[in-house]
Amino acid sequence: MKAATNTFTLAARVLHWLMAAMILAMLFIGVGMVASVSARHEWLLAIHKPLGIAILILAVVRLAVRLRHPPPPLPADLPVLQKLAALASHWLLYFLMLAMPLIGWAMLSAGGYPVMLGASLRLPPIFPTSPVAFAVLRHLHTGFAMLLFLTFLAHMGAALYHGLIRRDGVLSSMTGRR
């Protein structure tokens, strides 16, 4: 049997799975568009910017939900190292989902580009125009994207390990099924 505290709140679960799909799509869109010279480049870029801002907004909401509703505790018998890894990787994920859209926005601002989310919706710049800052932020955007993808792989692998090997209720605390 399962107490209510053993699952994430409904809001947390909805946010998790919605954002999982968005962030994973975003990572593929990002690496795909910069490696393409075809029409794909253009329409992926058109999705990339508004999707990034949507992720930023949801990440703020999610952080608030997380701080308000602490997650269910990890299994008591989980080795300390794994507990530490779980804690660190989750805060890394929170950091990256907030930092990536902000860096993208700042990078376009530094490059002197208008930050267009659609044909006419424009965000104000959040960084002064500077080619040096553009280059640094642009490389940071790629570097953090790679880190985010690797963290996602570890996160997915760990979730499946909990669900298939340990079967300790960690995976079902997010799927909501037991």
Partner: peptide
Amino acid sequence: AWALIAAAVGVAAVAFGYVGGWLAPQRLTP
């Protein structure tokens, strides 16, 4: 179970590598 986990992680990584062009050397890139 371990094979399933490895496959899930592997498929995701390979798909990422293909879309990003690292595993698609024939594609014309910028």
